[in-house]
C-alpha cells in the first residue's frame, strides 16, 4: 500500500509537469495526489465500494486543493487537476474496449455503467467542495471591483 501511495505521488507530480505546473507547486500537487490515493485505499478497505471511495477521495482532494489555493493565492485548478487525475476512470475505459474487442457485451455494459458512476462521483466530489467554498470565500483581498467568482454577490455598480 505504501508503494501505491508513493507511486501516486510520483505519477501526480510527473503529470503536473505535463500540464506545465510551476516548479514550486509540483511537490504540493504530488502530495495532494498521494494523499487522495491514500484516502481512496483506506476507504476501499473499509467499504469495499469503488464509487463511495472515489467520492470520499475526490472530496478530500478538492478540499486540499482549495486550502492550498487559498494559502498560495493561486487558481484552485493548479492542484485540483493533477490531484483528480488518478481517479479518472481509465481502467473502466480500457475494460469497455476489451469487452467490445472480445465481443463480451455483459462486461462492456457493466464497466460502462461503472465508468459513468465513477465519473459522476468525481463530479459530485468537486461540486460539493466548490459549493462550500463559494459560500465561505467572501471578502477576498482584491482591490478591484469585479464579479467575485467566490461569492454569490453581484458586483456593485460603479458611479
Amino acid at each position: 500500500m505504501l508503494l501505491q501511495i508513493i507511486s501516486a505521488f510520483i505519477a501526480t507530480a510527473g503529470f503536473s509537469i505535463l500540464f506545465y505546473l510551476p516548479k514550486k507547486y509540483i511537490i504540493h500537487a504530488g502530495m495532494t495526489g498521494g494523499f487522495g490515493w491514500f484516502i481512496y485505499l483506506i476507504s476501499l478497505k473499509l467499504t469495499d465500494d469503488t464509487i463511495i471511495s472515489t467520492l470520499t477521495a475526490t472530496i478530500i482532494v478538492a478540499l486540499t486543493s482549495h486550502l492550498l489555493a487559498r494559502i498560495y493565492k493561486t487558481p484552485v485548478t493548479m492542484f485540483l487537476i493533477p490531484g483528480v487525475i488518478p481517479f479518472v476512470p481509465g481502467a473502466g475505459m480500457y475494460q469497455i474496449v476489451t469487452g467490445i474487442v472480445e465481443g463480451n457485451v455483459e462486461s462492456t455494459s457493466h464497466y460502462f455503467f461503472e465508468t459513468l458512476q465513477i465519473a459522476g462521483a468525481i463530479a459530485l466530489g468537486i461540486f460539493i467542495i466548490d459549493t462550500f467554498f463559494r459560500r465561505k470565500g467572501k471578502g477576498q483581498n482584491y482591490s478591484c471591483n469585479a464579479i467575485d467568482a467566490n461569492t454569490d454577490n453581484p458586483p456593485e455598480e460603479l458611479p
Partner: peptide, 21 residues
Amino acid sequence: IYPNSIIAIATIISMAGFVGI
C-alpha cells in the same frame, strides 16, 4: 517553462507511476 526533454521524462515517469498506483 519546461523544455521538451523534461516533458518526455515526466511522461515516462508518470506512466510507470500510474501502473504502480
